[in-house]
Design a protein around this nucleic acid. Structure first.
Lengths: 186, 186
DNA sequence: TTAACATGAGACAATTATGTCTCGTTTAAG
DNA sequence: CTTAAACGAGACATAATTGTCTCATGTTAA
């Protein structure tokens, strides 16, 4: 990518790319440029091509998520509370988190490594939360991670579709995650 | 599409398409053909092109899901039990269910209509289950549907990645859905 | 064995996506 | 006002995907 000096256009492209690629991962670069309200040539003034774009999106997603999660976990008084605060903080970034689970992002080698690292960290947090009684030791960690991530994505969809505010959606997701749908309410 | 007389090749193409497009929605038709172990020309002997393929996949997904869900609900003694039995039955078809939520399938007009119909049916079942106490009246139906669908997809991923058997994964998903991760175990 | 049929491989053209360039216009800083 | 940088529009060339066709091969049923 080029130097992102011209913020507005560059950011518009990045935002449009997240949005369009989330809706349709097969979207053409022209569609992304149009969605950003810029010309096709301008796209190539910022990104050398699809691969470059994907890399930028992936790195930005990793950074944003890491920062937000770190900040959220800072004030937590337990591992379970950290998971709660992280969930609340990440719901608005559900698009980013989802993008990283897609094939396009997974094929960026450095991203694979970064995700594996974040994954390992998250796993240790989960292990501590398990000792705190958040879930039984017989529940596979993979399932805990899977359902945690998917419920965050679901909460983000609720917000996107106007069915809930970010805080309402996060609350529904956390309640469902911890105590099931029976205790979930707005 | 042509008449699916020659079952093996046709089915191999359909299965490969579900699998490949689930992993990478931007996959080329050539990739799908290769994944099915057939030549590119043979693909075009069964499907006129991408659009045709998507239509066939979508219709098949709708039919399979409808049949499996109907059959599962038949022996249910309550609406809540129906949701439980449907979940168990659909987890192995998670790929199909997921495909229908993607942009490609959503752009098929007849599929939109069929999904809206299934959606309305499902909504009435949920309303009855709510009266049975499965979840509070203040919990948005959209969230119940969203989390139900996503947990099914998550369960399917657990099976796909070898982290659980279909019945284990379905059990984890149902427990998480109803009573939260705290009660989820293998 | 023979005939009908599906297939694989490869050639080919058409279509679509992508990458580059130019030029005239707009914008913002000096 | 002047100038430099970013931009939009559009032309253009290249690359990738897609759709069609032919022919040789293998399979199956009569």
């Amino acid at each position: 990518m080029l130097n992102p000096v011209r913020v507005p256009t560059y950011d518009a492209l990045v935002e449009a790319a997240f949005r369009v690629l989330n809706k349709n991962p097969a979207a053409s670069l022209a569609e992304i440029a149009i969605a950003a309200g810029v010309g096709r040539a301008t796209f190539h003034r910022h990104f050398s091509g699809r691969e470059d774009l994907i890399r930028v999106l992936a790195f930005q997603a990793v950074d944003e998520l890491q920062e937000v999660a770190d900040e959220a976990a800072r004030g937590a008084w337990s591992y379970t509370d950290a998971l709660h605060k992280i969930l609340i903080a990440i719901v608005p970034l559900g698009e980013r988190q989802w993008f990283l689970t897609q094939d396009a992002a997974q094929n960026v080698p450095e991203i694979q490594a970064a995700l594996q690292k974040q994954n390992a960290e998250f796993r240790t947090v989960l292990e501590q939360a398990q000792k705190e009684g958040l879930f039984p030791a017989t529940c596979p960690l993979e399932w805990v991670m899977q359902s945690y991530d998917l419920l965050i994505y679901g909460a983000w969809l609720m917000v996107r579709d106007g069915h809930a505010t970010p805080s309402q959606a996060a609350n529904l997701a956390w309640k469902t995650f911890t105590t099931g749908i029976k205790k979930a309410k707005l």
